[in-house]
Nucleic acid binder design. Sequence first.
DNA 1: AAGTGGTCTAGACCACGTA
DNA 2: ACGTGGTCTAGACCACTTA
Lengths: 257, 257
Amino acid sequence: MGTTGQLTAVPEPKYWHLRTVLLRAIDTEFSIGQILPNERELAARFGVARATLRQALDQLELEGRLVRRRGIGTLIAAPRVGVPVNRQEEGWPGAARSQAWRTVDCTTAPAARRLAEALGVAEGAPVHTVRRVRLVQGRAVATESLHVPAAALPHLPGFRAESDRARSVLRQLERLEVDGESRSVELGVAEAEQAALLERPPGSPVLVMTTQYAAAGRLVALAVSTYRADTCKLTFGETGLVEVTPVGATPVGAAAS
Amino acid sequence: MGTTGQLTAVPEPKYWHLRTVLLRAIDTEFSIGQILPNERELAARFGVARATLRQALDQLELEGRLVRRRGIGTLIAAPRVGVPVNRQEEGWPGAARSQAWRTVDCTTAPAARRLAEALGVAEGAPVHTVRRVRLVQGRAVATESLHVPAAALPHLPGFRAESDRARSVLRQLERLEVDGESRSVELGVAEAEQAALLERPPGSPVLVMTTQYAAAGRLVALAVSTYRADTCKLTFGETGLVEVTPVGATPVGAAAS
DNA sequence: AAGTGGTCTAGACCACGTA
DNA sequence: ACGTGGTCTAGACCACTTA
């Protein structure tokens, strides 16, 4: 790259071109965990302002190719881990066999308007909320709020101390027979609370998965899970398909063009 | 908001605070399709540089709450549309009953290394690739490249003209009995080609869904779909659960805190 | 203390859409 | 012609990490 750069008359922004150049460098000249030259040097090397270079790095970070650590530098990211979000066995709380999730707390409160609408209960109706964190190799990759109308757990013994109630709710959930679930996935950003649990700064991109659990044809629970978008790839495995070499973050089709 | 703003001694960045303020304004004082004051005025009103204001708007755009149109302004976005990605009926190409997808082209080429690995075929083996665009209400929301090893379509009559071959491949796909699929979803950015098809600038965030199709226990096709993250919410409906009032882009749990 | 990425500024020019 | 968002610059200071 010459300093001036012979303009090809394309309206392609500098930061996008930079991203392409850096992406190729990442794929060919660097390996996972390696540290890139610092931003000021990269900017100087490419003859752009630091802000422009950062715009390119932002893109690559969004794609999960880079990790930036304050005080350290910019590193080549490891490929995203596939996180199975299969069926009850994986996702339902209370199951002792699920080592994936760790319960943070469990509260009961009147449903706010939006939550009541989503659950199909009256506004202000009591709803249990279980907050959990999903761990992969000891690192938090997701947070979840699972909302269950108190009416769906009829056998819960009246009032109790906080910790006792939490245990009771979890036990009840364990016995609940879930016979259907409907999920949706969309892009979001981590608010302060989730960000802290995920050990990421606020505003970090997350994949928001909303799961409706049904029992006997009725909606009995609603889970809102936020997965770190930088490190997670949600996998919906239905059949025991051979997990062949995973397709990288970049669509394979892109390589052909 | 005073012009100076009494610093609460929090290390919260300005742009994040701005996002919070703007988010509340969006929820309470604006309605869908309405145009916000322009960036220069907003920046002046909040007493920040335009770049800082833009950082806040970037966040809100990533969350799907704003749409920015060059030459027009910044608009309040409509809620994301739920895009069903259910089963063969929805996703498999060639089916005439699927009005959702429009075939762009169909080519046959030797498999590149990464594609060959993903498909479990030898590098250079011929692979058919069907490119499609998914339309919702006339607007493109997703592109897809569906790769099928030529060996999986044994009844394809030898050499043909381009257009004839495309039709043949599609017909063969229609007859292929798919008995299983495995999906994954992750965050990505639209490259130039996809971006053009999606009518978005390069670098726009997309949800990349990779689908492995199995027939008779073998991997027979691989689809890489890129959905516009700004307007799409992928829905994995298994049971015919009642579609109650959809939970908004912001997790319902956030409203309670 | 030195080096890193993160934030913020004040300005400039460009590309696009509308009138 | 004008107003909009999109890009880019050259600098400054801050927060964090390591030595």
